[in-house]
Design a protein around this nucleic acid. Sequence first.
DNA 1: ACATGTGAAGCGCTTCACAGCG
DNA 2: CGCTGTGAAGCGCTTCACATGT
Lengths: 233, 233
Amino acid sequence: MVCGGACGVGRLFLDFGCCWRVYRALVKSTVPKVTVQRLPVYLHCLEGMSGQEHVSSDQLAAMAGVNPAKVRKDLSFLGTFGVRGVGYDLDQLKFQIRLELGLEEEWTVVIVGVGNLGRALANYAGFTERGFRVVALFDPDPAKIGSKVDGITIEPLEDLEQSVRSKGAAIGVVTTPAVVAQETAETLAAAGIRSILNFAPTVIKPPEGIDVRRVDLSTELQVLSFYMHRRSR
Amino acid sequence: MVCGGACGVGRLFLDFGCCWRVYRALVKSTVPKVTVQRLPVYLHCLEGMSGQEHVSSDQLAAMAGVNPAKVRKDLSFLGTFGVRGVGYDLDQLKFQIRLELGLEEEWTVVIVGVGNLGRALANYAGFTERGFRVVALFDPDPAKIGSKVDGITIEPLEDLEQSVRSKGAAIGVVTTPAVVAQETAETLAAAGIRSILNFAPTVIKPPEGIDVRRVDLSTELQVLSFYMHRRSR
DNA sequence: ACATGTGAAGCGCTTCACAGCG
DNA sequence: CGCTGTGAAGCGCTTCACATGT
């Protein structure tokens, strides 16, 4: 980037001299996407530490498997609370990351599609540990309706909209077959869900105003396959 | 990048004039990482199409939710077999992607840790559909050993090395608790596994020569949390 | 006329290197 | 001295725009 040049934001052109920081703060006010993805990793590493009051970027970097400079830059987006010559205060750092990630709020989750994967997720301890509470399960199969998984009763699909709305759920997890994933996402959106985590092996076109993240298990295997294939040539 | 400038590769500096393509072909010979991640998505989209002989980059881009130019550039790494004014031959394109991803080989998979998630993955149809065959399951729990999941007998951890070696398995899926994930990865590496897919909520330091990919379900939720939190400020 | 293939510009993340400060 | 915070350079991916080809 040419420093001191003009920054184009949509059709608007602004000149901040050499100050990209001002640009970020005033115009975008955003933490880089890649940083957001690393914050949970840092948090996890920090939570596994004990018996020390401070952490250095080198230490955290080694645990998270990244470059120390990256750790420092990432953390600098949350504010300036490291101590030179010492490191970061462990408790404060954990708190700041949780705050930034919005983990101080308790988010409620519903899961649509109680197959093997849906059931596994309903039982997944990692959700509860992070403050995500599963409040409802939905499935179209009459044989499943009424039975419980981890204490939560499986409800019929027809009740989805009303149930989600009354519980004020924020996140919808889609573990349905691929063919009904889009439809499911739209129903969830209509019911007032704000974000969707999609495990169905298909691309969901995000409904208006909804943030969709995709986790595709077989995609991951295919990526591994590529690199194995490559290495053996 | 300054075109016509020098390209540094390690300590070696080479000058290829303006030709980044030559540089890629001769020195790196690699498809960009992000492209590799998108190829499975394209493939999935193509497999869902029928009743037409050709696809255009615009069409594929719309289905995959990306920019058309990106599709063309991605595909150009696999070779030059689009037809101007027409598009890509559907069957040929599917074949080329499968070839590039190494999906023409059948990879064998073992799963370590048969909890809810491990069981879900053992049953996961998406693996079989893509040519990944689960050949063994391992768990330390004596109560589980000997029972079957989807036709595969659960074996004790002690048999892992010998069993993996004799079956010539290529991919190890780690669905153990976080505390034993590293250890598990090293055992898998010692047994001759070549790649690891890690679902344990922790960072595995890759054993020598092993490619490790990490899928963390709660990380994904935390990323969603960040953006929801952000929006409501 | 239409869609690919691709230089080149744009943009954002990574990494270096060091000033700044306890 | 040690470690953070950060300009600036490096690098790779994205996107544009259009030459190229059918």
